[in-house]
Design a protein around this nucleic acid. Structure first.
Lengths: 209, 209
DNA sequence: TAGATTGTTAATCGATTAACAATC
DNA sequence: TAGATTGTTAATCGATTAACAATC
């Protein structure tokens, strides 16, 4: 396959699951190889799908043996960019910001939150996870000096788009938005909206059915 | 169409977006009708897709005029079950639990968190959003007495599956899991895993590209 | 060797897009 | 009426599944 081809979002999600499966169930139990059937059973997919996905990112298996779990993990990590390093600024030091920043898995994916910013003067100066909350007017300085590529938005809904626009103006490369709104961005900026209302709709729908 | 047909997850996501568009951009500005082209432009979809989606849930438009925004909203709300009422228990009164419970939009989707439970004796008895944090051993009582249908898991990763199993045993109908693990459930329980690592992977991938 | 499992091509299925007649 | 927009069918596209030869 063409090495530079963009991975589809659904493939990306499956790869993340494969990776978790390998790490949780396989490597811990001193199993070194897995068959596509085992992975498929775990991820509730067709085994052809698994073989195709692994082939697509360049993992090679051995007939009659399966895939080396360590190969799968390292190839996925490589293809998804987990072994590189990215700097992020978190904007919005509220409850949600605090919860996000305390998520233990960031570094494993190459992400490093190097600064926290908040517009509320009562919050600036306080410490969260070893970082001093900076005032909003320092955002530009921080982004430029630290060469920050990612902005994490945990601001209220009303300020999400303006904050995003400001970060875009500072030439941020990607945004991770937790405010309940779909942020709009130019084509060269990547945005991921984590919109709780989609989950809420999913649950309400299934509970009402 | 068959009224009882299950809606696909992707359709569900599009419907949520249509609903937000109607509420935010349209109703606020005293516009009463929208064309499929307008919705499509906002949601970055093909306009045929929009017409097909709206037809699928039974919204009828008027040629040369478009769709009544209020119709779209009320039909989506009805089909997705937002106008019914569901009780939920939140398990895990940590930072994430606090952030989730303070989300302002729950009631709009019919969801009501009626109890909070935590296994840490230092947390039980404290108040969060007007609710007293209950000890874990009351979980069964609470679920039965309040006839709770949904469990929201904001516990640490290590206790997520056991907590889920306990809620399943209490005949909960659905689980909303925020712990970084894919919860496994029997076929008759609905689970939605909000797994931050998928977002992390998506961002790492795009930043590395 | 025999048999299990990969890698890959072909077949199927479903979702998206295009087209256009119906219609207000 | 003329023309814009729906509703729906047909065409296209892509993703999933099936099948099986290659192979360890």
């Amino acid at each position: 396959m063409n090495e530079s081809k963009r991975l589809k979002r659904s493939l990306l999600e499956r790869l993340v699951r494969y990776c978790h499966f390998m790490q949780d169930k396989v490597l811990d139990e001193e199993i070194t190889t897995v068959s596509s059937a085992q992975v498929a059973a775990y991820a509730e997919l067709d085994e052809s799908q698994v073989r195709k996905d692994l082939a697509a990112i360049g993992v090679r298996g051995t007939p009659r043996v399966g895939y080396r779990a360590a190969d799968v993990v390292s190839t996925i990590r490589d293809r998804l960019g987990f072994d590189e390093s990215y700097k992020a600024v978190l904007v919005g030091a509220g409850r949600l910001g605090g919860a996000i920043i305390s998520y233990p898995g960031f570094a494993k994916y190459g992400l490093h939150i190097v600064a926290i910013v908040d517009s509320d003067p009562r919050k600036t100066g306080s410490m969260i996870s070893g970082l001093v909350v900076q005032p909003m007017h320092r955002l530009g300085q921080i982004v430029r000096r630290e060469q920050i590529e990612l902005g994490i938005l945990t601001v209220p809904r009303a300020s999400a788009q303006v904050t995003a626009d400001r970060l875009i103006d500072l030439e941020i490369k990607a945004l991770w938005n937790f405010a309940p709104i779909w942020i709009s961005v130019p084509d060269d900026v990547h945005v991921r909206n984590e919109h709780l209302s989609v989950g809420l709709a999913d649950l309400a729908y299934h509970l009402s059915g």
